[in-house]
Design a protein around this nucleic acid. Structure first.
Lengths: 228, 228
DNA sequence: GCTCATTCGTCAGTCGTTCACATATTCTTT
DNA sequence: AAAGAATATGTGAACGACTGACGAATGAGC
């Protein structure tokens, strides 16, 4: 998973790769704008390809499907987290802990909403629109459910590694499911109702606390790598 | 949700309804056979409709999509559980408890595999094949993820009702997520590896125990409606 | 500069799904 | 029993996402 990682870094990019990265970025940019303007269903691949001046077949060489293109902005930061989680060099030092990485991921997510920018309102509107489409279009549902599964699996594997358990450790899988489900639930509520005071980041993090608190104390200790 | 409930019961079925039920059942039967023979992708709607002697457009009036048709055998028993959970008459007496209903649902699921029948092997092979397709086809992913979401939401609402909490109670939602995720994880393992001794039912139920044990004791008491 | 692999465009096609409209079948009412 | 309402089904056409085969262009390496 998580194929792409070089954008600003890796200076020795060939011309070919630079062109590819450029079209890829352009595709995301144009599609996001068109989706916002005309809706997901209201935007055909042809519409997007007309502007980028490529054919739909070429677009599908960049993105697995229209849905994957639409979810690219959400997938990219998630891939970064997954890369971190899967990094074999990762040591359980300060900040290397899985739950800690998860917390920081949620902080970034939440801050994008909490810190008031000129674009924050648009950002939220986009998210709400997307959720509406994601409730309707099957391929979009599939792609985002795939996204969630990848996240859950990576979390589970990382948690299992932390505990020295086998990769498919059931306990770790359940904790991961709880963490991901909690994130989803908080986001859902936040998108449904106006903020009413609190911060999204705070809510997201408090659900992590909630989940961790409810683990058996000994396991929680190990998970958080608290020293005795 | 969960529209259909009358099959053997409700004696005063009109001719119209009987015919509908018949074609519906025939569609499921034929499609399941063809899927098993030629695979999901290898079976077109036309193939199915030729045998049942209707048009694809008519088929899509019975089932929302090809994927929904394929998942009908899984959806029907689940709908029965959801009906029970949503029943406003349900009282928290013996067997009325949400967790108890969930346990019985899992028992039925598990017994279909545990009790050795001539068809058990075929049944398991079908499930494995289905899981392979469900990993590939987007619409199938979407439909089964929708199925899981419906189950989780119904469980969450029922748990919330048990606790006298608002319908969208976060705690209940998380417990429901844990229960459903646990079920999925156990099934996955069971389908990956041969049984090796234990019973599927036992494994499914032990994950419920696991989840319930890890709730705060007071909440668990209330959830299980244990009398002081 | 030449070869080679990769990448892209074109063309044609499949399949699921939707829509509008006409037809047939069942239910209801008199 | 027959007329009329309601509902189910068939027909024909179309859309759009996606796939495959094939040839042309383009950048990479010698």
């Amino acid at each position: 998973m998580s194929v792409r990682a070089n954008e600003a870094n890796s200076p020795a990019t060939s011309l070919r790769e630079r062109k590819k990265a450029k079209t890829r970025a352009l595709l995301i940019e144009v599609s996001q704008r068109l989706f916002a303007e005309r809706g997901y269903d209201g935007t055909t691949l042809d519409d997007i390809c007309d502007e980028v001046e490529i054919t739909p077949q070429t677009l599908l060489r960049y993105f697995e499907s229209k849905a994957h293109l639409a979810l690219a902005p959400a997938r990219d930061p998630q891939d970064r987290l997954v890369d971190l989680l899967e990094d074999p060099e990762r040591e359980a030092g300060v900040g290397g802990d899985t739950i800690e990485l998860w917390r920081r991921f949620l902080e970034r997510e939440g801050d994008a909403v909490d810190t008031p920018t000129g674009l924050t309102t648009t950002y939220l509107q986009n998210l709400r629109a997307f959720r509406r489409w994601t409730d309707r279009d099957p391929v979009l549902i599939a792609a985002s459910s795939d996204l969630e599964r990848a996240l859950r699996d990576a979390l589970a594997a990382a948690l299992a590694a932390d505990r020295g358990a086998p990769t498919d450790d059931l306990h770790s899988m359940l904790i991961a499911a709880l963490l991901v489900a909690g994130r989803g639930a908080v986001w859902d509520r936040w998108l449904d109702r106006p903020p009413e005071g609190g911060s999204l980041t705070g809510d997201l993090l408090s659900v992590v606390d909630y989940a961790v608190e409810r683990l058996p104390r000994s396991s929680a200790r190990r998970l958080l790598r608290l020293v005795e």
